[in-house]
Structures are given as structure tokens and as C-alpha cells.
Computed example of a mutant assay.
Amino acid sequence: MKTVLMSWQFWALLSATFAALTAIFAKIGIEQIDSDVATFIRTVVILIVLGGILLGSGQWQPPTSISGRTYLFLVLSGLATGASWLCYFRALKLGDAARVAPLDKLSVVFVAILGVLFLGEKLSMPNWIGIALIAAGAVLVAYRA
């Protein structure tokens, strides 16, 4: 069991499961509310839960122990996350969850490309074929006939 809990694959699949539930719960939750207000409520819940986890598990770090570079990139990541959430909830408000979520998952394709361009990551031909299939699949699922 300890091996499974230390596996990135386990956590990635769990993340995908929660992301799927996020889309379904959000689509139901935003039926009678502005999508930006819904995003705000979601963010407050996340802050409270994560704060509780950090305090309860003793993982809290003093802010002064974190480097300026780390702050810079975490702030940029937070801004990108916020923009992503605002756009995602707006898309859910306007479209079907079964079509919005696959287009949102084009982020997988974008991460692969950006990882190669900016982080120097290497992908093999089978990896690129998988990326192309993800892109094609996302577009096909989002397509409305």
C-alpha cells in the first residue's frame, strides 16, 4: 500500500477523478449564480481546507523561509490558476460539462509543448503521438454535430 501512495500515477489518477467531479458539481452549482461568484466561493473553500491541512499536519512553513524566486513563480502560477478557473466556470455556465471539460484538458497538450520549449523536457515519438491523440480526442468530444 505504501508503494501506491508514493506513486505519481496514483495521485494523477486521483486528481483526474476529482477534476471530473469538479466539473459535474460546478455545472450543477452554477445554474443560478454568476460564474465569477461561484469561482470565488470555490476559492474560499479551497483556502480553508488547505489551511486546515497545513496546520493539522504540521507542514506550515514560515513565509520568510521561502525564496523570492519561489514566491514569484508561485504567484504567477496562482494568477494563471485563477484565470483558468474563471474561464472554466464561465465556459461551464455557457456550455455542456461533457464538452467543456475535454477542451479544458487541452492543457495537457499545452503543457507538453511548453515543457519541451521552456523546461528542456524530452518526449519520444510515442509521447507525441499520445499528445496528438489527446488533442484530436478533445476536439472531437467537444464537437457539436
Rank of each mutant, 00 (worst) to 15 (best):
I129F: 05
A38M: 03
I41C: 09
V49G: 07
T17F: 15
G120H: 02
V116E: 05
W11R: 13
I46T: 14
V111K: 08
T70L: 13
A26F: 01
G130K: 00
A19I: 03
G52M: 07
A19T: 04
W60N: 04
R99Q: 10
F25K: 00
L76H: 08
A98L: 13
S107A: 15
K93V: 03
A83F: 14
L50P: 01
S84Y: 15
L54Q: 03
V45N: 14
L54I: 10
I134L: 06
K27M: 02
T22D: 13
A12P: 03
I46L: 13
T39A: 15
A98F: 12
R42T: 14
R99M: 07
I28T: 10
I113L: 12
Q32P: 00
G58R: 00
D34I: 06
A83E: 03
L13Y: 08
P63R: 00
A26Y: 00
G52R: 02
I53W: 10
Q61S: 09
S124E: 05
L14C: 13
L133K: 01
V111I: 14
K93A: 07
A16K: 06
L14F: 10
M125Q: 06
V116Y: 08
A20I: 05
A97E: 08
L114W: 14
T81C: 10
F40N: 06
G29K: 01
L50Y: 11
V100E: 01
S15M: 13
A19C: 02
Q59L: 12
A135H: 05
I28S: 08
P62L: 09
R90A: 14
L55W: 13
Y71T: 12
I113A: 05
I134E: 05
L123M: 13
K27Y: 03
Q32E: 04
S107P: 02
A26L: 00
Y71E: 12
V75D: 11
Q59S: 10
A80M: 15
Q32R: 10
I30P: 01
L114H: 08
G120K: 00
R99L: 04
V45Q: 14
I33S: 04
P62N: 13
P126K: 06
W128H: 08
A83G: 15
L103F: 11
E31M: 10
D96S: 12
P126L: 00
L55C: 07
W11H: 15
L50R: 07
T43K: 05
G115Q: 05
S77Q: 13
I131N: 02
A132Y: 06
G68H: 10
V45A: 14
L21Y: 01
